[in-house]
Design a protein around this nucleic acid. Structure first.
Lengths: 185, 185
DNA sequence: TCAGAGGTATACTGATCTGTGAACATTGCC
DNA sequence: GGCAATGTTCACAGATCAGTATACCTCTGA
């Protein structure tokens, strides 16, 4: 991606997430990134393609954070709930809920690339939970992973509420992991 | 509300939920409800006000369903998880996630009435869980209520995924309620 | 040397957006 | 009878939307 392309995506990320995709016009993105609208269209071809790039880019950033947080854990059982620690960090600068859920809300067409990206993001996390649960020798990793995903998405969805649900979420997540731990010497 | 007003809100509900708020223009709503744009503005004054009415109306319908489902339960312990049965019914005809979360995604301004309505909807459910948990003599109803709300929102958020999370959600919810039941003669 | 890639500047199209103005028709109620 | 509420018709304003056309600039690498 060219320097101008990167600046465009950066501006798009900020604007799309904070103001909504449909509400933000390409003119504003071009202005905010100090670039001509012609350059934007030369780089991305259409607004839809820019939206897809924005979501893919964001997905990459988030996965990196989650992976890094998982890697800091010493014991496998801690790693299972590490994504909830990552969520706390992430939520410090992302207070408008899940960008992918929000994108789906605005883009009803299931053939829009945003749908595939959003679904893959959730499925990636589900699979990560399953792998971590397996590595921690939990019983029934598949069920546990689904439960953890539910909690994760619930915590994101209740972000706008005037109550702190993140601590409760992490507590319950850890309790579920503990309950499914198999005793071993 | 006048007959025309009701038709407008009905059309707005269908269009706003399925296509997104920003993406749907007042012209389309007027046409779909067989009404002039002039009438729409005479009744609601602005699109923002129509959006608020749409959300309030939807909230009422949903609360009625939840209350009705709770009322069919014979034992208090079943009533605690009745909202998850209501969610199953609701999801049969509402497959595009939570209308309130979706609305917040499109309307960043916290002073928009949609924010108050959405927050109140979640807080109402949280409080209902708390009351039901108290009535069922659960230990720590406040924590249990938060956990159940998290699961509820998680189930809604994972709706677009190609896996059925609703059953897992209800199972876990019932398990949490059982675990917090106090033994009594 | 020169060709191509990346980018700028500016004007434009045609459609769509929210919201308004003004005149007129219908209905029910006092 | 007459008034007020409800609604229609239709034209219009001013802004913004996604996307395009044309011409020009600048730098790099073969």
């Amino acid at each position: 991606m060219t320097p101008a392309g990167r600046r465009i995506v950066a501006a798009a990320e900020e604007l799309f997430y904070n103001r909504g995709i449909t509400a933000v016009g390409v003119d504003l993105i071009a202005e905010q990134s100090g670039v001509t609208k012609r350059t934007l269209y030369n780089q991305f071809g259409s607004k839809d393609h820019l939206v897809a790039t924005y979501l893919a880019e964001r997905d990459q950033r988030w996965r990196s954070l989650v992976r890094a947080t998982v890697d800091t854990c010493e014991r496998p059982v801690e790693a299972v709930t590490a994504p909830f620690d990552a969520l706390r960090t992430w939520s410090e600068t992302n207070t408008r809920g899940c960008a992918f859920i929000n994108a789906l809300a605005e883009l009803p067409d299931p053939s829009h690339p945003a749908h595939r990206i959003a679904a893959n993001q959730k499925l990636w996390l589900l699979n990560l939970f399953k792998e971590l649960a397996t590595a921690a020798d939990c019983s029934d990793p598949a069920t546990l992973a689904t439960q953890l995903l539910l909690l994760h998405e619930g915590a994101l969805a209740t972000q706008p509420l005037p109550i702190d649900t993140l601590s409760e979420t992490a507590d319950l997540a850890r309790a579920l992991v503990r309950a499914s731990e198999r005793p071993h010497q």
